[in-house]
Design a protein around this nucleic acid. Structure first.
Lengths: 333, 333
DNA sequence: CTGAAAGCGCTTACAG
DNA sequence: CTGAAAGCGCTTACAG
């Protein structure tokens, strides 16, 4: 590359090199098949000679397509969403989008802030695991950005939703445990609306079908491995020990199994444990962890498809996409 | 907000509302203290009335400061870097930067691609856990973006480096194990240059101080929990069983402890295990995991400081920042 | 298939 | 403390 001293090369520089107009270079870059083969060849040479790297800030401003997507998640460490996010970022990248990552933490207001930030960048879409406030919904609706809420299916999503019915998942877990003959479930629920929905589904079904008592514990978000110590210690103080612990995440389930084993209990014989999310550890743990699998890759694909439709100005066939879930019976329960 | 029908409001709209020029509104937004109090008040009202959200694509183009930073990591699932990345993204956000996330995977060429993509966005900096090819180094040097390589200290970093000496870490682990009286270490090394440097440091020190044999196993990247099964099974087939396993990550260490326990061994009495990275699970595992702690938050702070200096046009006091590491002796070894 | 020209929405010397 | 104006580097009808 001939480094033009100082200044970073622009479209104009490439055009001069190739003996064409900037417009033609732009066409070549965005739509190579519309330029003549010979012209394309000269442009390629010009790009190589100048070391040209397109300026997507300028491109985005001119076309009002930023080719960026914001991805908003609560946490990164021990997060149940990581498989989904990794799939999402890779799929986005393959589709020519860059991912802007926002970490919301536990504070709901943070999500709204990050959404504003994303709108400032004129992102093509915002993918969020959390809901946004009414005021922010207005902002998003007035913008050209598509809001995609993932992992849950609110009744009236601000944009579109790709997720599953948490209440049904809770019910399925209850049914499964009843069918296996468990009698005294202990629910370890993380803070937050989704976990509460699963809890409600579980309790409802359990009361209807089994009728016994359901004990509960609450853990702070993020529900992770380290919470298991306290949860287990508290559990041991209960009058009657549960025979199965229903955990809000596989990491928590893993922690409980380890605590139980350290206390000399066998899992699942003395205490069964069921997780949630089918994180990569679930199938490798000893014993392997019975859990609910969510198809993160499918969520990612559906999100990209929606973004593409949005970019093409097409309507969305449905505002809610239910990707379902699947109970995977393994050794731990 | 009075929604101007259709069009998203611009600086000009706010300016008209406030009865000032667009330049003044711009100044208010970027440097509030330079505008008169009364003017500021009218501008605030104008912003509220129009529902104005700045267009950072335009802002970035005009100022050639994108206020974006690319963060390139190999993986998200069970990744040792997650604590650092979470700290990084939060710190960046607090400093007014948005983070662009790139997942490089195992393929080195992918990093170069992502760097080009980042340069297209005219990011202020690129933070990468991996190295880039010579050609990409040229590209980066000619750009205005600062390249920050983290977690390691190459001799001649393309930009600046913030990390620690992996070889020394390997040496320290060897010294520690020798001091504890271990005799037959088994190294489980992940693919990749950093792990190899730790391995070399370990072997060098072990040979010099203890003199015995060091057995080794290689695991693919990412080095995670699930690899433990095979590693443990292979280990059992060795003529003489090791008395301590040196793992490339805490997740792998955790997996080995679980495998060992499932096989009826006690950790550390029958088999000791040492991890790497001080991930959140390390302190909560039973037994707690002896490991090397890296101060991820410090890396994040140093990175932000460097980005700030770069933005201010200041020189960097040093091209390499050694944040060191710390061996944390816990129960597992 | 290609070019001239307007425009995207900001920032920033320059002048006052 | 504020305004007029040029410019950042692209894209995209429009015309040929």
């Amino acid at each position: 590359m001939n480094e033009l001293p100082g200044r970073t090369p622009t479209l104009e520089d490439v055009a001069a090199h190739a003996g064409v107009s900037a417009a033609t270079v732009s066409r070549y870059i965005n739509n190579p098949e519309v330029v003549a083969a010979a012209t394309a060849e000269r442009i390629r040479a010009g790009i190589a000679a100048t070391g040209y790297i397109p300026n997507l800030l300028a491109g985005g401003l001119a076309s009002s397509k930023s080719k960026m997507v914001a991805v908003l998640i609560p946490h990164l460490v021990d997060s149940m969403f990581n498989d989904t996010i990794e799939a999402m970022v890779s799929e986005l990248s393959a589709a020519g989008f860059n991912a802007m990552l926002g970490i919301t933490g536990v504070c709901a207001a943070r999500t709204d802030e990050l959404v504003r930030g994303a709108l400032s960048r004129r992102v093509d879409a915002i993918i969020s695991t959390g809901p946004i406030s009414g005021e922010t919904v207005d902002l998003v609706r007035r913008s050209a950005s598509l809001f995609i809420q993932v992992w849950e299916l609110p009744d009236d999503p601000p944009g579109i939703a790709i997720g599953f019915a948490h209440r049904d998942a809770g019910r399925d877990i209850a049914r499964f445990l009843i069918s296996r003959g468990y009698r005294r479930p202990h629910l370890v629920t993380a803070e937050g609306a989704r976990a509460a929905m699963r809890r409600d589904g579980f309790v409802e079904e359990w009361r209807a079908q089994a009728g016994g008592a359901v004990s509960e514990a609450l853990v702070s978000i993020p529900s992770r491995f380290g919470h298991a110590r306290r949860v287990f210690a508290d559990m041991r103080r209960m009058e009657e020990l549960p025979d199965v612990v229903v955990c809000g995440s596989d990491y928590l389930a893993q922690g409980l199994i380890i605590e139980a084993q350290a206390a000399g209990l066998r899992v699942p014989d003395n205490l069964a444990v069921i997780g949630f999310g089918n994180s990569s550890i679930a199938g490798d743990m000893r014993p392997t962890i019975t859990t609910i699998d969510i198809d993160g890759a499918r969520i990612a694909r559906e999100a990209i498809a929606a973004i593409r439709r949005h970019a093409a100005g097409e309507a969305h066939p449905n505002r809610s996409v239910d990707v379902g879930f699947r109970l995977i019976a393994r050794e731990s329960a």
